[in-house]
């Protein structure tokens, strides 16, 4: 069996690691996710010939990543939950009492030029890291892992309304951050 693992790691280890890193953004967590995937693959060798080994392993890895994300959210300290309440209260930051934009959204584009584009993407990445942890986690599950909303609610034990408010806040915050740090003039 461990021969299998050697082969799998040699052929697919780098791919699985990058897949995990792109979603977890943390090298140690990404290594752990690959390890958990290998352990699960060995344990219930459910591979059936109708998909490639890589597809099969990636399927297991996806579950492991979501498990880890869920655990992270559950382990959030109370202070972060208070943080979220503060965020909810400031729902109206972006609009005046009559529902008009306080600061009208500005126009910006995804840069075509490679260097400029990579600068844009690193600003976006930095903005995402600045989101309150819980908002970031739900945002990651929805917009980065592309998990369905109803599944997120089930996983996180929150109501659809809560999930929607958190997602709305996260997206509003992100675009504002992009505006402030990217569209300077």
């Amino acid at each position: 069996m461990s021969n299998n693992v050697n082969d799998w790691l040699n052929e697919h280890g780098d791919y699985l690691y990058r897949f995990a890193l792109a979603r977890l953004k943390d090298t140690h967590q990404a290594e752990d996710a690959v390890q958990e995937t290998m352990l699960a693959a060995i344990k219930n060798n459910s591979f059936e010939g109708d998909s490639s080994i890589r597809t099969w392993l990636t399927g297991i890895l996806k579950h492991k990543i979501i498990d880890m994300q869920r655990k992270l959210i559950r382990e959030q300290p109370v202070s972060d939950i208070i943080d979220l309440d503060a965020v909810n209260e400031s729902m109206d930051d972006f609009f005046d009492k009559t529902g008009h934009w306080l600061d009208k959204p500005q126009s910006f584009d995804m840069p075509d030029h490679a260097l400029e584009q990579s600068q844009f993407l690193s600003v976006l990445d930095a903005c995402m890291q600045k989101l309150p942890k819980k908002l970031k986690a739900i945002f990651m599950l929805r917009d980065v892992h592309e998990m369905e909303n109803e599944n997120i609610c089930k996983e996180l034990d929150i109501t659809p309304t809560n999930a929607w408010v958190m997602l709305y806040r996260a997206r509003m915050g992100l675009r504002k951050c992009l505006e402030m740090n990217w569209v300077k003039g």
Partner: peptide, 23 residues
């Protein structure tokens, strides 16, 4: 919002396709 989501997708695929990143 659309640019934001496309950007996130690009960040993800850039890492996935970067053969310099290895286990």
């Amino acid at each position: 919002l659309n640019i934001l989501l496309i950007g996130l997708c690009k960040i993800r695929t850039n890492i996935e396709n970067d053969s310099a990143i290895q286990l």
